[in-house]
Design a protein around this nucleic acid. Sequence first.
DNA 1: TTGTAGGCGTTATCAG
DNA 2: CTGATAACGCCTACAA
Lengths: 344, 344
Amino acid sequence: MTAMDEGAAPTLHDVAREAGVSVATASRALNGSSRNVRAENADRVRAAADRLGYEPHLSAQAIAKGSTRTVALVVRDVADPYFSSIAAGVAQAAEEAGLIVTMAVAGGSPERELAIVRTLRGQRPRVIIVTGSRIDGAGTRDALVEELAAYRTAGGRVVLISQRDLPFGTVTIDNHGGSAALARALLGAGYRRFAVLHAPAALRTSRDRHAGFLSGLGGAGSALAVETGFTRAGGYEAARRLLERGLSDVEAVFAVNDVMAIGAMTAFREAGVLPGRDIGVAGFDDIASTVDVVPALTSVAVPLREAGASAMRLALSGDGDGDTDAETRLPVSVVLRESTPGRR
Amino acid sequence: MTAMDEGAAPTLHDVAREAGVSVATASRALNGSSRNVRAENADRVRAAADRLGYEPHLSAQAIAKGSTRTVALVVRDVADPYFSSIAAGVAQAAEEAGLIVTMAVAGGSPERELAIVRTLRGQRPRVIIVTGSRIDGAGTRDALVEELAAYRTAGGRVVLISQRDLPFGTVTIDNHGGSAALARALLGAGYRRFAVLHAPAALRTSRDRHAGFLSGLGGAGSALAVETGFTRAGGYEAARRLLERGLSDVEAVFAVNDVMAIGAMTAFREAGVLPGRDIGVAGFDDIASTVDVVPALTSVAVPLREAGASAMRLALSGDGDGDTDAETRLPVSVVLRESTPGRR
DNA sequence: TTGTAGGCGTTATCAG
DNA sequence: CTGATAACGCCTACAA
């Protein structure tokens, strides 16, 4: 009758006793630099551990070693393909580095995001990755920076994914440049009069993409701005408003992200306005469904998975003082598809 | 010059010293049953904690209290909308219960899944939720059961999401019934000759859905089986094979999940075979994109988010001995859309 | 109400 | 190579 039957997980003590060695030896045999323990004893210990179904208590290890093997990830919404792709990249890179990822969902509220980062600090993760656009004007910015800075001076690594506006390592997506390139490509395809479906300007990502598009247009085209939510529902709703208003003066719609664009396409279609034929539609992010939607959606490709992996790399590559505010810029590229066949 | 500047996170000792009280008092003021500490001291401590940017070391707490506030989630692929929806549900429910969720990606390999569960045990989470279909014939089944059982006797809670074939609490999806209902609905719409795009039979979910569909058909229809992968790429590829073979004798295609169905639709469309008009297409899961794809995809709705939330509820509702092999059955419902307009 | 001391499961140091 | 033993950061009787 071992300790297991008592309803408690077996500890290193149990294993040591079972193997007839000291805890120290057991510890060394299972985790420590395995070379310094007699082969026979090592086998004994491993066998005992096996028999008991022993798994080292990670929290205990963390506290003894003074460090964890955890990376904390903060996303706005896991169900959104944008974030889940990034999460997949983080998970894979973490796995390769032998790290465990803990995930928290902020749900678009800066306050919750702040609270999350705060409690995350309690985990003493090696790395904290925060993905999702900063929101201007939220009173939480300074508090967030402070929290993250404290974490970093305590030896943690911080990496942000989106745009570079906090003094930490960042994986940036060229929102401005990508949108500008898209605008030029659409001009090249013959479009001149646009509507831009964007989220409130406080959302940096939306603002940058919007601004980039306008700058890409230069003086060569016009752009009607329609503000809405940063989600599929937002895109749908904005398109409906556009329809009510009348589309006579718009040839193409640029939604600042793909899910919005896809929502808009559905709204247009329902109203009998065929995307691609009656109106051009373009998005941003190049999520997987762009090619399964009809017509296939023109977009700006962002290597989302890679963004997650890059963030991990950036975090792990620090030179030790945790003060690397390095930046990894992700390449973006315009992908023209049937949703913007070009005019004439 | 406090300890923070040394590059280490402040500890309760630091806070206590700063506040001029003992660690015990500081502990009580910050975490313990706050009532038994003089208000003035409590304020002092909180102020000190604040000043120092103190966050309790969760690992230390875990080891001292003998339990964590963590729930571990195992998924096959976060980027897959099926899993990310479930993950979103889990995250939300966990958040409401004040729990932290750690996520591991198994990538469809039973070996990796087993390894993950093993190391997850080391975290001593309160709950382990494993989602994703069981794979028959993998030699890992017994080992997985053993691992999970050991975890449970040590006080952990186990919940599976998918089908009930391991002796643990389970949130089940009525794959068989849902597919049968779908088959009947399609028969009702006038379809008789089907092709079923399914994954290898070792994958329980696929097999159940396939079998359910056949049973729903009864003798009233025929079904050509096409085996492929359980992913969008699999659906695409299977559809291409179907096209090469000739579609003259199939009126509708049932893919055992939506991403496969969507891949198939794209393949058909590329070949000039219009889904909905030239061939019916149906899927299973009712992921978000079913309504954004053209034609909208007929599917079997599964409350995915709810599945995640239910799993948390089931885990937390145990009566204490962790031996509740309860089952929560999720309702499924057929949703007919334009991809199966009906014949004639 | 407060402080002292012991313990949680591991690792690391330091003698044997 | 091995075994005591002291940390690690926190909680919690127990005593004051």
